[in-house]
Design a protein around this nucleic acid. Structure first.
Length: 211
DNA sequence: TCACCGATGGACT
DNA sequence: GTCCATCGGTGAC
């Protein structure tokens, strides 16, 4: 097996599994890639959060809510859910589980690995620093993802994940409560935020939530 | 380093 | 009119 064959695009079967928390953990160490207008960008996923459909008070689909915005969450796993937050930022989520369920994984931070100069230009930064991709509203800018990509297939040619053979040991995964969901009552305490231990590319906002 | 606050628009009441 | 799964600039220390 040669080096180039080590990059395997995650198949639809990865996303259609029922346990969104497991998928959120397993996305750590995978590579998130985009190719728009021939420009390839790629980064290592270092921070995720799980949102568990209609039973999760922090999830946009809580209690079965269906709107034009959230409808895509009920799609079969393997598509993107991208929404606008605070009128400015696009947040990128991976829809998981079967048709009719509304689970999703928010990608909160990546370590830039390929197309870094393009990311820097898109972010309008003078140098390479964590502000490039360390935050859910930042990495979408760097990768060129916006709300127009909601519904996009993750097994197509514009946005996808790759497994490049990195094994993440259990002890290298930090767990903690999700960010910015205090309104969710008891569900705000669920330890459904996952980070790669030791990474300088995890999000810096909300230091009081740091585990 | 840290706290505060404005930006900005769509979803929802 | 109010609320956001956020970020960056500002100013105090």
């Amino acid at each position: 097996m040669g080096p180039t064959s080590l990059a395997q695009k995650l198949p639809e079967a990865f996303y259609t599994r029922p346990d969104v928390v497991t998928i959120a953990r397993e996305l750590l160490g995978k590579h998130l890639c985009t190719r728009f207008d021939g420009v390839l960008t790629r980064g290592l996923v270092v921070e995720t959060e799980a949102y568990s459909g209609t039973r999760d008070a922090a999830c946009h689909a809580h209690l079965g809510r269906r709107t034009k915005r959230t409808e895509i969450m009920y799609h079969q796993g393997g598509v993107a859910y991208v929404y606008l937050i605070y009128g400015i930022y696009s947040l990128f989520n991976v829809v998981t589980n079967a048709e009719g369920t509304a689970d999703a994984v928010l990608i909160r931070a990546i370590e830039p690995l390929e197309g870094i100069e393009e990311m820097r230009l898109r972010r309008n930064l003078a140098k390479i620093e964590p502000r490039l991709t360390a935050g859910p509203g930042l990495l979408t800018q760097a990768l060129g993802i916006s709300t127009q990509h909601t519904g996009a297939s993750l097994t197509g040619s514009e946005i996808w994940f790759e497994d490049r053979g990195l094994e993440v040991p259990e002890q290298d995964i930090l767990e903690g409560p999700r960010v910015g969901v205090a309104y969710a009552g008891a569900d705000a305490l669920l330890p459904w935020r996952f980070r790669l231990k030791g990474s300088r590319w995890v999000s810096k906002a909300n230091p009081k939530y740091q585990v």
